Amino acid sequence: MLIDVHAHLLPRDYPENASECFPRMERIDGDTARTLVFGATRFRARDVFFDAERRVEAMTRSGVDAEVLTPMPPLLRYDLPAGEGLALARHINEFTATLCGMAPGKFFGFGMVPLQDPDRAAEELTSFHEQGLYGVEIASNVLGVSIGDDRFLPFFAEAERLGLPVFVHAMPAITDRLPASAMGTYVVGMEGALAAASLITGGIAAKCPELKVSFSHAGGGFPLMLPRAQYFWSGTWNEEEPVPNRAIAHDDGPSPLEYARRFYYDSMVFDARAVRYLVDLLGHDRLLIGSDFPAMEREEPAGQTVRSLGLSENELTDVLWHNAFRYLGVESPL
């Protein structure tokens, strides 16, 4: 069994009388694909984004048994007024629930919320279980503010209370330090790292110890930042026993690595050496299969890189599907 926890969807259509805050899906003559038009975004969306039958066919070809479906990240428009953001989120959540209902057991849908208004976002989470949604997707920053900021604590506390897992997708923040062409590569990697680090340094990880969070693309550069943070906390190399009198920033709480090992990370890092590092540093029980499909093509067959690592049967089973059920809070079928 293999579960892809990082796969995206787009609604087929939007209401004809929708406000200007809504995207459009324009038809393409002679093609089953449609063009997503949303602000500056112009994206050709193949029918697999919104057609359940096509998705299941693609999953079967790749050896994928189930997908966790989240809205395409450009739909996370926190620059909209909160009321319009809520209307957009509700439309997309309704579509997600409908799509997932067409193939029960194959799709686990995640909704979205207007996180530009943390209180309203927290209130909206109470409807997710009724809709059949399993979790919520958020971006790594809200208009340049990292998600670890204390203003987002009510949202995370409510997600923890409801047992809803959170999927953090790296999204570029406004920056002029790199060219626009680097936004989808280097900037996204930095954003994932900042988001994960901010949940620890901002205190949310401490205040919400049962919160289930996963990060796209393994949190970008976050795993490579951790050994340095651990050294400052412990004063020792290689995660040896802490020596507080040598530590630079020691406290009596969990270490940075202990906090980081509460999170989940998808395997979408493109190199077996990087995946091996994640397993060695964070543990095989923290890793999930991810692909970014259909925005990006899966490796064929899915999970090939993870299978090449020489993990034990139990470790491989955890990464391929068991960890996903733990993260989702769903009883394993096997």
Rank of each mutant, 00 (worst) to 15 (best):
E94Q: 12
P227K: 01
D318T: 00
G329V: 10
E16P: 02
P165Y: 14
H91S: 05
E240N: 15
G109C: 14
N238D: 10
S234L: 13
A180L: 15
C208L: 05
E123N: 08
A40T: 05
L287Y: 00
L115N: 10
H217V: 05
A302Q: 14
E53M: 05
L9E: 09
E57D: 09
G310N: 09
G163P: 05
S62N: 09
G283Y: 07
L164Y: 07
L224W: 14
D266R: 15
D65Y: 03
R228L: 05
V243W: 01
M1Y: 06
Y277W: 04
Y78R: 09
Y134I: 04
R77V: 08
I147W: 08
D51N: 15
D47K: 06
D47H: 13
R262A: 15
V37A: 04
E300M: 13
E300Y: 08
K212N: 10
V64P: 08
L10I: 00
A274E: 01
S216Q: 03
G192Y: 06
S255R: 00
F152I: 01
Q230I: 07
T201Q: 01
P73Y: 04
T236K: 12
T96D: 11
F110V: 02
Y264W: 14
E160Y: 15
E210I: 08
L226P: 03
E53K: 15
